[in-house]
Design a protein around this nucleic acid. Structure first.
Length: 407
RNA sequence: GGACAGGUGGCCGAGUGGUUAAAGGCAGCAGACUGUAAAUCUGCCCGCGCAAGCGUACGCUAGUUCGAAUCUAGCCCUGUCCA
């Protein structure tokens, strides 16, 4: 369908919309007034990773379209501890830990959204503010009657667990109630009328809408994004080194840049639309590049996203490092560096030291497989000694490079 | 509280006394081919050691045995059904 509001047109043409509860209703509302909309985020780690970037960008679009983004941090839900994790994740975060995480996560939002007190300025709230105030009996009496177990059992999150015979705790079962409660609370406190989220949040969002309709007779809207996977079917944001973190102190800018530079050909257009502000005709042009020319589009993607999430300088530095490292075979400034003692260093220690191998055994396997290089030359002798005194380039495979620098 | 089924490496999943550091798959790393892509093929994939080897590891603990992921007991956890 075609939309009248800037908001839905923008979200639609850039590929953010998967499901929408009431397209006409939201379209009409967004066309005539400022719509405060929110998305909830986890506070379990000091940084979000690229898996959350779609949601963050959607808040940015909301603001670009003249509406008000509300970032909801799940401080309250985090406090409870996420029981869905496997055996090890029983750790309960302390309040201080959660607050520190929220502060750290906020730095990224500040790059992508404009915060303040204005009508379309973004705000950040913590659901701990209201969730920790809830009394159990009170909650049961007020929201309890609006949920039937019958219906809760039909939600995918519940159904899948039961079908796979995996444990589903009462705590988790209550998540959807708390989430629904959040939406109502935000509607009352901030006039919030839209909740967005990943497609897995659909059920939670709908619950919030229904709860608020029943309790407050207010009409709210929900919108979900498509589940973002890479072209080869993997979930976004995982690489060799683990998650692709948005915060600089969790992942150096050069590695962040490299993640986007190495994206699958088929994902380039989609990612440009979702993760950059480039105009659509420009994206169409980049996307149509074929063969090795698409690499130019990937560089644009990497630069744009790195600029947004980190800084323009970081993007430039990363690109410069990449081009001298890959094209010239030189040493870029952004490469990881390890000190090279005057007496030199064994190849194994060098590989472990710079983090290309987790253990000495792994370093040896890398060497045996022909993947270890010093100054571009493959090293097959695990006793190889790197002479001290001069800067040396060390590589694991063709993509991971580092510098050994005399100290 | 009871009956039954189960708890294996990052994940899934074989394995019921020695030839099992544990089949197979996925994920990951490297090589070849390329475009710092994909697909494909090949090798690697617990730690230490140049190596023979050593140390850890199959929910936890204690046993049986020359020898246990495999047998026994207790405990913890999960599922299904029952109270």
């Amino acid at each position: 369908m075609t939309y009248n509001s800037t908001l839905l047109r923008l979200l639609d043409e850039r590929g953010y919309i998967h499901q929408l509860t009431d397209a006409q209703g939201l379209d009409a509302l967004a066309a005539k007034q400022i719509v405060p909309g929110y998305i909830g985020f986890d506070a379990t780690a000091p940084s979000l990773h690229v898996g959350s970037l779609v949601q963050i960008m959607m808040l940015r679009r909301l603001q670009q379209a003249g509406h008000k983004p509300i970032v909801v941090m799940g401080g309250g839900t985090t406090k409870v501890g996420d029981p869905s994790g496997k055996d090890e994740s029983r750790k309960m975060l302390t309040s201080e830990g959660i607050q520190a995480n929220i502060a750290s996560i906020r730095t990224v939002f500040e790059k992508l959204l404009t915060f303040g007190d204005g009508p379309t300025d973004a705000i950040m709230v913590d659901n701990d503010e209201w969730l920790s105030q809830l009394g159990y009996i009170e909650l049961l009496r007020t929201v309890g009657p609006h949920f039937t177990i019958n219906r809760m059992m039909t939600f995918d999150s519940v159904k899948l667990r039961l079908e796979r015979e995996q444990p589903l705790t009462f705590l988790e079962f209550n998540y959807m109630i708390l989430q629904a409660y959040d939406f109502r609370e935000l509607a009352l406190r901030h006039g919030c009328s839209l909740q967005m989220g990943g497609s897995d949040q659909w059920g939670n969002i709908v619950n919030g809408i229904e709860l608020t309709r029943r309790m407050e007779a207010k009409e709210l809207f929900g919108l979900t994004t498509p589940l973002l996977t890479t072209a080869d079917g993997a979930k976004m944001g995982k690489t060799a080194a683990g998650a692709v973190w948005l915060n600089e102190d969790q992942l150096p800018a050069y590695d962040f840049w490299q993640y986007w530079r190495n994206v699958d050909d088929r994902d380039v257009g989609k990612f440009l639309r979702l993760f950059t502000d480039l105009p659509l005709d420009e994206i169409a042009r980049l996307e149509s590049l074929e063969g090795s020319e698409i690499n130019a589009a990937k560089i644009v993607l990497a630069n744009e996203v790195t600029t947004l999430c980190r800084s323009e300088d970081a993007a430039k530095a990363a690109e410069a490092t990449a081009s001298t490292t890959f094209a010239g075979g030189g040493l870029g400034a952004d490469l990881p560096v390890v000190a090279l003692p005057a007496e030199g260093l064994g190849i194994i220690d060098a590989l472990v030291g710079i983090g290309f191998a987790a253990s000495r055994g792994e370093a040896k396997r890398l060497i045996a497989g022909g993947g270890a290089r010093v100054d571009g030359e493959s090293v097959s002798d695990e006793n190889f000694h790197i002479a001290g005194g001069a800067e040396v380039r060390i590589s694991s495979g063709k993509k991971k490079h580092g510098v050994l620098r005399p100290n």
